Simulated scan of single mutants.
Amino acid sequence: MVKVGVIGLQGDVSEHIDAAKKALENLGVPGEVIWLRKQEQLEGISAVIVPGGESTTISRLMVKNDLFESIKKLGREGLPIMGTCAGLIMLSKEVIGATSGQRFLGLLDVRVNRNAYGRQVDSFEAPVKLAFSNEPFIGVFIRAPRIMGLLSGRVKPIAWLDDRIVGVEQGNVIGLEFHPELTDDTRVHEYFLGKVL
């Protein structure tokens, strides 16, 4: 049985839980989606989602709750991990505008600019092209980070806003600037969960 954990320390956790449950249902796969807060909950985990929120807070609380090193190790060992918005920042190797002492998992060979789109009032929705689907996906961008560069050939673009890369994949890891959990469309979660099946 598939067990998906959404890191539930800060951010839009319940939305990801609902989207992942719906995606499992659409795929016809039995499984559970849990609110992941403690290291012991990683036992038997099949995939992890790092939600949007505030990356400095998520980083600090992951360290405090003994999740940081465990998630990093599991990601290096091939556990499927998806990060959206602040989750993308957490997964990145290089972060422009990081706060002092902030730690990152470094599982994606990308450079991102934290809060590149501006303030909350600058949030927007726009059609995103996906590598794995012909239909556009409505991307919700909220104080989003911006992917400024791919740092190795191992990173593959999987989502574009016009001609700009807004989503990437590196083996078992996916990072997105936008929030797929804030729509009723589960294609991105289904694609991610395909890495478990």
Rank of each mutant, 00 (worst) to 15 (best):
L79D: 00
R60P: 08
A144M: 11
I49G: 09
E77R: 14
N113V: 11
G75M: 06
T57L: 07
D12W: 12
L36S: 01
K72E: 10
I58L: 15
L151P: 00
E135Q: 15
V188I: 12
R111N: 13
G87H: 06
E94Q: 08
S123M: 09
G87M: 06
T84Y: 05
Q102Y: 04
E25N: 09
L130G: 02
E54N: 08
L67T: 06
I71C: 06
R164Y: 08
G5W: 06
V128M: 08
N115G: 07
F68C: 00
I158N: 00
P145C: 14
F124C: 05
G149S: 12
E125L: 03
F192Q: 04
F132W: 02
L150D: 13
F192Y: 03
V95M: 11
D66G: 15
K38N: 14
S55N: 04
A47P: 00
R103V: 03
V2M: 11
N115I: 04
Y117M: 15
K129H: 07
L161R: 05
G149Y: 03
G106W: 11
D12Y: 13
L107A: 08
A47F: 05
P145N: 07
K72N: 02
A126I: 08
L9T: 01
G44D: 08
R114D: 02
F124Q: 03
L151R: 02
G31T: 08
K22Y: 00
I147N: 07
D185T: 06
L61G: 02
F104I: 03
L107K: 05
E43D: 13
R187H: 05
A86W: 09
E15L: 14
V166S: 13
L108K: 14
G106N: 06
G75L: 10
G106H: 04
R60H: 14
E135S: 15
G149V: 08
G87E: 01
Q102N: 12
V112G: 02
L88Q: 00
N26C: 10
D109G: 14
V121W: 09
N26Q: 13
I89N: 00
D184C: 09
L105M: 09
V13K: 04
F137A: 15
S152L: 05
V155I: 09
E43Y: 10
E77N: 14
A98D: 09
G149Q: 01
M90R: 06
C85D: 08
R119N: 10
Y117S: 12
R146H: 09
V110R: 03
D12I: 00
L182M: 12
N172W: 00
R164K: 15
A86G: 08
F178S: 14
E15Q: 14
L176K: 07
R154T: 10
E69V: 00
Q102F: 03
G118I: 09
